[in-house]
Design a protein around this nucleic acid. Structure first.
Lengths: 246, 246
DNA sequence: CGAGGGTTTGAAGTGCATCAAATAGTGTGG
DNA sequence: CCACACTATTTGATGCACTTCAAACCCTCG
């Protein structure tokens, strides 16, 4: 397991925090306090950040890298709840949950985080209505996202879930043909989509055959976007481009 | 389809609103405005309340009855997102979503609702930090609930999902042996748990055989709670009693 | 080159869906 | 109170999708 990160971000902590939608419109004193309490962390791939039900003293902003949130059963099987990257937060809703994390979190790539005390967030939310509103809006987006997740698990089959995953990687203004790079291991994407690695591999092959996409290692070429959309989105209540979390 | 409700609730609108955790600690003027804008609605079973993406002028409090929230695909298959009853709210997060509903809603039993204008909620949230905090706490609970839902779909098989559903119907202090009444149609429970009615029927039979529960029509007797818990909860990260939404 | 993890492929099994039909339950009008 | 219609539920037979177990392949990195 690497201890040296490949691409440590060098942005000042304040800039990262300042760019977050969550802290938009926050008054200067509050912002200063956040800034003073923020710590930058470099986390190697594979490192466990916290377990479910751990006491939550800090929440995190991802500067760069990837983090998976998951729940693990007594039997050892795990369900991935979400996989997050730059600009996303996690652990922040512990504030409303007995101050414990509701999921375990693990860095799945070398990752740079900023940690902030949950106690401070709690205090600031209570005193700043602006911050509370931002938080509400962020939660609401997540909630919508979760609704979609549940729908996907129910109504889409394996190749369609993969198609949907690929489409959500497409930037809205990207020119056809689209070239994508899978953001993390196929095994992990599989788990993220609620299937086994073997199933993922076979389902991807089927998707390729059905929609004419080409796959070279971790790179995917989508020559006919429309073919992918019509194979995938007819089985979903939201159609492409289904705007993802900001 | 009945037009007359069986058990129309007769509680004054103000009492119902006043009892909601969402409006706890709200100041009197705000409360008065809500009260003045509230309307009681008697909805017959089967009535569609709104579709996904409909403009959301009102959100609703369930006084009594059952409402399902769902998403429907172009192909006609539907995914149930949640099934709600007395004291639950729905439609309120449209406030953060372009003022449109993110799910369709349908009364699945004769139901009494109170409708409130989303515009008013939006305004009150912006001016009352207390209300914003209450809303955050409600959303956070829902979010946790959704995480569990995703986990269940991923790691539990059909009989276990049913077992989990039954356990969540048990009141925490209920004496063993427990007697439960299924709150709505088996077909609907099936869909709620992401399976077909035929599968539900067979899975329930299997659960019965495995855990010694007895089933008489819509009534379930749980003689050995522990048997049910151990069959069900070992495959989940949360153990009984997994406190549900308040 | 060789070790180890990620990925693919093959063969066999399981769980759930589907289609079809029987049965039970409920509300209706006579 | 009964016969009927209609819906909810169960049961049976069959098929498909996904999983499981096993082995091969590939790629990276020391």
């Amino acid at each position: 397991m690497a201890t040296v990160l490949k691409h440590p971000s060098s942005l000042p902590v304040g800039d990262v925090i300042g760019a977050l939608a969550l802290f938009e419109g926050l008054d200067t004193p509050a912002f200063e306090r956040l800034n003073a309490a923020a710590q930058r962390l470099n986390i190697p791939k594979g490192k466990l950040l916290h377990l479910q039900d751990d006491p939550a003293d800090y929440f995190y902003v991802i500067v760069q890298g990837w983090v998976k949130l998951f729940r693990e059963t007594l039997e050892g099987s795990e369900a991935i709840i979400d996989v997050l990257t730059s600009g996303h937060l996690f652990g922040e809703n512990a504030v409303f949950e007995n101050d414990c994390y509701s999921c375990a979190a693990e860095a799945i790539e070398d990752t740079t985080l900023i940690s902030l005390p949950t106690a401070l967030l709690k205090e600031l939310i209570a005193s700043s209505n602006q911050l509370a509103l931002n938080m509400l809006s962020s939660m609401s987006r997540h909630r919508l996202q979760q609704h979609r997740e549940i729908e996907h698990l129910n109504v889409q089959n394996a190749p369609q879930r993969i198609g949907c995953f690929l489409l959500r990687l497409c930037k809205p203004d990207q020119p056809v043909p689209v070239t994508l790079h899978l953001p993390y291991d196929k095994t992990l994407i599989a788990s993220r989509l609620g299937m086994k690695p073997e199933t993922f591999s076979r389902a991807l092959a089927k998707l390729k055959e059905q929609t004419g996409i080409r796959i070279v290692g971790p790179t995917v070429y989508i020559d006919r976007l429309q073919a992918l959309v019509s194979y995938t989105c007819n089985h979903c209540s939201t159609s492409f481009p289904c705007d993802d979390l900001g």
